Amino acid sequence: MDKIAVLIPCYNEEKTIAKVIRDTKAALPEAVVYVYDNNSTDQTAELARQQGAIVRYEYMQGKGNVIRRMFREIDARCYIMVDGDDTYPMEFAPKMVDKVLCHNADMVVGDRLSSTYFEENKRPFHNIGNSMVKASINHLFGSEVKDIMTGFRAFSYGFVKTFPVLSKGFEIETEMTIHAVYNHMQIDNVIVDYRDRPEGSVSKLNTYVDGFRVLGTIFRLYRDYKPFGFFSLLAVLLAIIAILFFIPVLLGFLETGLVLKFPTLIVCGFVMMAAIQSFFAGLILSNMATKSRRDFEYRFSQVCKEERCKQGEEPCR
């Protein structure tokens, strides 16, 4: 087991990868640097290998697929994940490592939004999107995470080996954050500087397509992790619709003693039944989510025991 593993997912980063590796080795000389190449068509892999990094490959396109591969293959006490585009200064990495190794953090967020991000980033829609995602997740999940979509993070062994990677692309950061928040893992924050990409380096993030994917991920994970809240909101919405359309039918009946709009009455009845079903579906799924959390706590404790075993702190059985 490595003490510190630095994981760098890369796709066509030949302009910056060599500098990122040099900066990493200067900041964390004891770390093992892994570069995972995701079908690059330039010299990214060759340049990384020349700088002494261990180069591996993921052939399924997408950052989420790369992270799944990295988390499966690498064992370490502390993981640093950083993008290969040289937007994150590596001098902040030792402080993030200390949070994991000495202060029991499960995930450390490299917080760009509290420092230079809004000055350095030249894409205004990214600024708006980051703020919206941060506000929505903190509101929906009752958290106080400072930067949801940062690509600069540190993880414990327990987090990495229990995190189910479901996303394929850039929405993976959102998924990581919600997973940690929902399972009450210790999340620490380190404010880091941010610098825009150097000239000639091109972002792979599509503002609109990936933005909608992130919003879809938030919607999906809120439904999965907070089913009672999600289906209760749906039940209230359906009940309001049913009541609004039922009121004219009721007023007509009170005035004439006749039901003048039988189709509307029937539809209102079905919509109200759907609202009731949605409410009880939320109750059932909430109980299932509670059981899933209990199972996760047991699995997490087993993974932590496995980590101690690999470090030689207790006998393996």
Rank of each mutant, 00 (worst) to 15 (best):
D2T: 00
D2C: 00
I4G: 09
A5P: 01
L7K: 12
I8T: 04
A18C: 03
K19M: 08
L28W: 02
V32F: 01
V35Q: 01
V35L: 13
S40H: 09
D42E: 11
A45N: 04
L47K: 15
G52A: 09
A53C: 11
A53E: 12
V55D: 08
M60G: 04
K63M: 15
G64W: 07
F71Y: 14
E73I: 01
I74T: 07
D75F: 10
C78Q: 09
Y79C: 05
I80Q: 02
G84Q: 02
P89F: 00
A93P: 02
A93T: 03
K95Q: 05
K95P: 00
K95V: 01
N104T: 13
M107Q: 08
R112F: 14
S114G: 12
T116I: 01
P124Y: 11
G129K: 12
M132D: 09
E144D: 15
G158T: 07
K161N: 06
P164F: 10
P164R: 01
V165Y: 01
I178P: 08
A180N: 01
Q186T: 14
V192G: 02
D193K: 02
D196C: 08
R197C: 02
P198H: 03
L221T: 04
Y222K: 11
Y222A: 08
K226V: 05
P227E: 05
P227S: 07
G229W: 10
L233F: 10
I240N: 03
I243T: 13
I243A: 15
F246I: 02
P248Y: 12
L254C: 14
T256G: 05
T256L: 10
L260Y: 11
T264Y: 11
V267S: 12
C268E: 03
M272V: 02
M272D: 04
M273R: 01
I284V: 14
I284Y: 12
L285I: 00
L285Y: 05
M288V: 09
A289C: 11
F296H: 05
R299T: 11
G312P: 10
R317A: 13
R317Q: 13
